[in-house]
Amino acid sequence: MTLAQNLPKRRFKFPFAWVVTWAYLLVMLLIPIGAMLLKAATSSPQEFWEKATSDIALSAYDVTFVTALYAAIVNGFFGTLLAWVLVRYEFPGRKIVDAAVDLPFALPTAVAGITLATVYAPNGWIGQLVEPLGIQLAFNRTGVFIAMVFISLPFVVRTLQPVLQEMEKELEEASHCLGATNWQTFWRVQFPPLIPPILTGIVLGFSRSVGEFGSVVIIASNIPFQDLIAPILIFQRLEEYDYVGATVIGTVLLLISLILILIINFLQRWGQKYVG
């Protein structure tokens, strides 16, 4: 490493970037995390466990994680389809569709929330189509699902696209030459290397959905035991000045995001095996 050669000469220089990075992380990120964990530690393990597994909290986890999982799986399927279509086919408007996939990243969640609530409400453009069938799409768990699908839409597409683009054409041709059908070529040759990026995208989308607040709080009715998600429960606890209650659920969510990060790192390493 050339840098190592430079090091002796520069040993006494003030490592400016190093100090700024750690100081900023410490003040902005690590101390706040520490503050929350310390606050959580002020309650006894027994009290913590009781608050973390109260009925209302358990029902909030259920709504949050199950709905986020559904949304992630739906986007796993349609995201794969979208990435495939965008990489393999040429069609009018392809560039616009490609750019539009990033919209959920760029659109403020409050805007997403009010427009989804309007479109999927019983008198909205899409809501009124299913209203005669007795199906209500907004202001219940389905609404939570719709908001989560919206905000996690780009992840699978964006993790899969580069992998699809770099896929070797020769493998596919070899498979055809050996007499495989299109369908066999897809399942046996093209699909297996796509599994790690698809799973990575699904977990990234899931992780985003689990933490989502803005769009869900608007499209759901936020009633406990019905469609109340964990982040909104934290918000409600804070409004009631129940800081310990909020902290306990916040700590649970933080631990789950840490676990999800580990899973994502593992999936990315797995995916790199195929690239190498």
Binding site: P32, K39, V210, G211, F213, P231, Y243, T247, G250
Partner: peptide, 13 residues
């Protein structure tokens, strides 16, 4: 990865 609500909670705490 941290939920924005949890981020806000940390600042409040």
């Amino acid at each position: 990865s941290i939920s924005p609500v949890v981020a806000g909670l940390m600042i409040v705490l």
